[in-house]
C-alpha cells in the first residue's frame, strides 16, 4: 500500500467560495471558517454539510495514519458512453473538479489507535455514483478486511449506480455484496455509515449490509428518490420521509450519530466486536 497524503486544498476547494454561506438547515448566514473548523457543522443548527471523501477520512482517522490503497484506479469507460457529452470527457472534468480519479477512497487506517480498513465515497464525483472503480475499491477494501482480519468501516454517500457504465455499474452491487458475504463467513465486522444522501444502488447493496448500520442526523436515505416516489404515488410524502430519523423509527438503522461523536462511537463498537 502506497502512503499518500491528504491534500487540504482539494478538500476545501469544492465548498462554494466566499467568507459567508447560507445554511440549508436554518437558513442563517454563517461564517464559513467556523463550519470548516467544526466538522462541517452549522454552528447554529448543527446541520451536517456534505464532506468530501478525503475530508471525511481526515476527520475519522488518527492523524497521518491513513494509507490509501488502489489509489490509481480510474474508469475505463466500458460502454464508450455518450449522453449530451461523452462520459470520457465528463470523467476528466470531474477529476479536475474534485482532485480525485473517481468517487471512492479506501485504505488502512487507525481510529483512536485501533487498526481498520476505512473507506469513504465522495458526494461530488458524479454524485458519488458507483461504477467499476467504486465497485472495485469497495470490493478491494472488503477483501483486505477479510484477509487482514481487521474491522471494516465504509462511509457511504451516493446517488446510486453510475448510469454511464450501464449494466456494469449494476453488477457492482452484486460484486460488493458477494464480497461482504465472504467477509461475513470469515467472521469479519462491517460497520456501515450512511451519510447524506445515500440512495439507490449503493443503498441497495453494500451500504445496507453492515453488521451495524449508523447514519448521521437528517440524511436522505432510501431506495428511490423522493421525486420518483412522488410521481408514482401522486400524493404528498410524509413529513420526514426517508430521513435517518424515519429509518431509525422503521427499524433499518442501529443508531444516529452526530458527526463529532462518530470517531469515538466507531472505536467503542469495534471494541465490542473484536476477537
Amino acid at each position: 500500500m502506497a502512503k499518500t497524503t491528504v491534500h487540504a486544498a482539494t478538500q476545501e476547494k469544492r465548498v462554494p467560495e466566499g467568507l459567508w454561506l447560507r445554511c440549508p438547515g436554518c437558513e442563517n448566514m454563517i461564517y464559513r471558517k467556523q463550519v470548516e473548523e467544526s466538522f462541517g457543522l452549522c454552528p447554529d443548527c448543527q446541520h451536517h454539510f456534505r464532506l468530501t471523501a478525503r475530508r471525511r477520512i481526515a476527520l475519522l482517522a488518527d492523524e497521518g495514519s491513513f494509507e490509501e490503497m488502489l489509489a490509481d484506479l480510474r474508469s475505463a469507460d466500458p460502454l464508450n458512453f455518450t449522453d449530451r457529452k461523452p462520459y470520457a470527457e465528463r470523467l476528466v472534468e470531474e477529476q479536475k473538479k474534485t482532485g480525485m480519479l473517481d468517487a471512492a477512497v479506501v485504505g488502512k487506517a487507525f481510529i483512536k489507535g485501533r487498526p481498520l480498513i476505512l473507506g469513504a465515497l465522495d458526494p461530488d464525483f458524479i454524485m458519488g455514483s458507483m461504477g467499476s472503480v467504486v465497485g472495485e475499491k469497495v470490493t478491494g477494501a472488503i477483501e483486505k478486511a477479510a484477509e487482514t482480519h481487521l474491522p471494516l468501516v465504509i462511509v457511504s454517500t451516493s446517488g446510486g449506480a453510475r448510469m454511464m457504465e450501464g449494466i456494469i455499474s449494476l453488477m457492482q452491487m452484486a460484486k460488493t455484496s458477494a464480497a461482504l458475504a465472504r467477509l461475513d463467513d470469515a467472521g469479519g465486522l462491517f460497520i456501515s455509515v450512511l451519510v447524506n444522501p445515500c440512495t439507490a444502488g449503493v443503498a441497495a447493496s453494500f451500504a445496507f449490509l453492515g453488521d451495524i448500520i449508523i447514519a448521521e442526523p437528517k440524511a436522505l436515505i432510501g431506495f428511490a428518490g423522493p421525486r420518483v416516489i412522488f410521481q408514482t404515488m401522486k400524493r404528498e410524502l410524509p413529513e420526514g420521509f426517508q430521513t435517518s430519523e424515519f429509518l431509525l423509527e422503521h427499524g433499518f438503522l442501529d443508531m444516529i450519530v452526530e458527526r463529532p461523536n462518530l470517531r469515538s462511537e466507531l472505536a467503542a463498537l469495534i471494541d465490542y466486536c473484536g476477537k
Binding site: A178, A204, A207, F208, F223, A224, I229, T232, L237, F252
Partner: peptide, 24 residues
C-alpha cells in the same frame, strides 16, 4: 416499486440482503 410503503419497509435493504445471500 418506488413507493411510500416500499421505503417504509426497506426496499433497499431487502434487495441488498438478496444480493448477499444469493452469492452464497
Amino acid at each position: 416499486f418506488p413507493g411510500i410503503g416500499a421505503e417504509e419497509r426497506g426496499q433497499a435493504q431487502a434487495i441488498a440482503i438478496n444480493l448477499m445471500e444469493m452469492a452464497r
